[in-house]
Design a binder for these strands. Sequence first.
DNA 1: TAAGAATGTTGTGTAAACACAATATAAGCA
DNA 2: TGCTTATATTGTGTTTACACAACATTCTTA
Lengths: 80, 80
Amino acid sequence: MGVHNRISVFRAERGLSRKELAEAVGVNPQTIGYLERGDYAPSVELALKIAQVFGAPVEMLFSLKPFASLAQTISSKGES
Amino acid sequence: MGVHNRISVFRAERGLSRKELAEAVGVNPQTIGYLERGDYAPSVELALKIAQVFGAPVEMLFSLKPFASLAQTISSKGES
DNA sequence: TAAGAATGTTGTGTAAACACAATATAAGCA
DNA sequence: TGCTTATATTGTGTTTACACAACATTCTTA
């Protein structure tokens, strides 16, 4: 119950594999998989590290409510 | 290993007791005590809820590095 | 003075966040 | 074709984030 996340989206944009992200934050590659699948939510420590890798605030990557689609999120910001 | 936090500072400003904060985020009052003492770090879920209560981003309440003093933090923002 | 609120401490128990190993599958490339 | 990389799945084990109870301490406040 859940914390939702956009790890896979940010990871895709950066062209990072799970293994590479895992190494960057110091966890087992499987752990990234568990997070992306929503099997469980990370500790704040891990969340802070992941957010740091992507240069984004924690709230942009993790949320108590489901994320809106990228299309909605981006267009509501008036960007292209 | 540590995640540092400013929960007690924000709680003091609001005049909230641990019990009240605990009820606001749905955990046991003792849990707030453990967090404030640094006995352990919260899940992202709890961190998001606590940050939400104070209307602050997660990074303002939780950090991988020790927080600077309020005096430094506030004066470096040019506020009074 | 007593009584209540806030906090600290210790202890026990459970659930969830990890590590790690093994194996399967699919896609891309030599 | 075989090899590698990325991902999914299953299983076992350890650590830690929690719940809950009991009790001590300090500070108010009636």
